Simulated assay, not measured.
Amino acid sequence: MKKLGYTCGLDAAIDVVGGKWKALILWELHDEPRRFGELRRSVVGISEKMLIQQLREMEHCGLVHREVYYEVPPKVEYSLTEFGQSLNTALLPLGDWGEKHMRTIEAIPRP
């Protein structure tokens, strides 16, 4: 993530949620806290390594809270912070747009 010098709000927002996986992880966390394994199964196509990396980045910038329960077996849950919830809310119209235009997008030839 950049530290300074954003040209506009969109530049800053894209820096926080950039890439394919973060928005999908945010969406999966929108209702309730989720364990790592649940996220791994629900975010189709993400590798374990990538999920760990993305969750760490999202925790670092304050989007996600990681709660460790010291029990046997150990339990870790991820949830959205207030900051993460606000970003998820901002992404909802983009998801609606994608749903509305999914067939058109799928028909675009890929290079």
Rank of each mutant, 00 (worst) to 15 (best):
M1N: 09
K2G: 01
K3T: 06
L4K: 10
L4Q: 09
G5P: 02
Y6C: 02
Y6Q: 01
Y6L: 01
C8W: 05
G9S: 11
L10Q: 12
L10D: 12
L10M: 13
D11P: 02
D11C: 03
A13D: 12
A13H: 10
V16E: 11
V16A: 13
G18Q: 11
G19W: 05
W21I: 06
W21R: 08
W21D: 03
K22P: 02
A23T: 12
A23F: 00
A23V: 14
A23D: 02
A23P: 05
L24V: 08
I25V: 15
I25M: 09
I25G: 06
W27H: 10
E28K: 15
L29T: 05
H30Q: 15
H30M: 12
D31N: 13
D31L: 13
E32I: 10
P33L: 11
R34H: 06
R35F: 00
F36T: 03
F36C: 04
G37S: 09
E38K: 08
L39H: 06
L39P: 03
R40M: 11
V44Q: 15
G45R: 04
I46M: 02
I46D: 01
I46E: 01
S47G: 09
E48I: 00
K49G: 07
K49W: 10
K49Q: 14
M50I: 08
L51C: 02
I52Q: 14
Q53E: 13
L55I: 03
L55K: 03
E57G: 05
E57I: 03
E57F: 02
M58D: 00
M58V: 01
E59Y: 07
E59Q: 14
C61Q: 13
C61F: 07
G62L: 12
L63W: 08
H65D: 10
R66Y: 01
R66S: 07
E67D: 05
E67T: 10
E67F: 03
Y69Q: 13
Y69P: 00
Y69H: 12
V72R: 15
P74F: 09
V76T: 15
V76K: 11
V76A: 11
S79F: 08
L80E: 04
T81L: 06
E82R: 11
F83Y: 14
Q85W: 04
S86Q: 12
S86E: 12
S86C: 06
S86R: 11
L87S: 02
N88W: 15
T89W: 04
A90W: 11
A90F: 14
L91P: 01
L92M: 09
L92H: 02
L92G: 00
P93N: 05
D96C: 08
D96R: 13
W97A: 15
W97D: 06
G98C: 13
G98E: 09
E99T: 02
E99I: 01
H101D: 07
H101C: 03
H101M: 08
H101W: 13
R103I: 02
T104Y: 11
I105F: 15
E106A: 15
I108V: 15
P109Q: 08
P109S: 08
R110G: 05
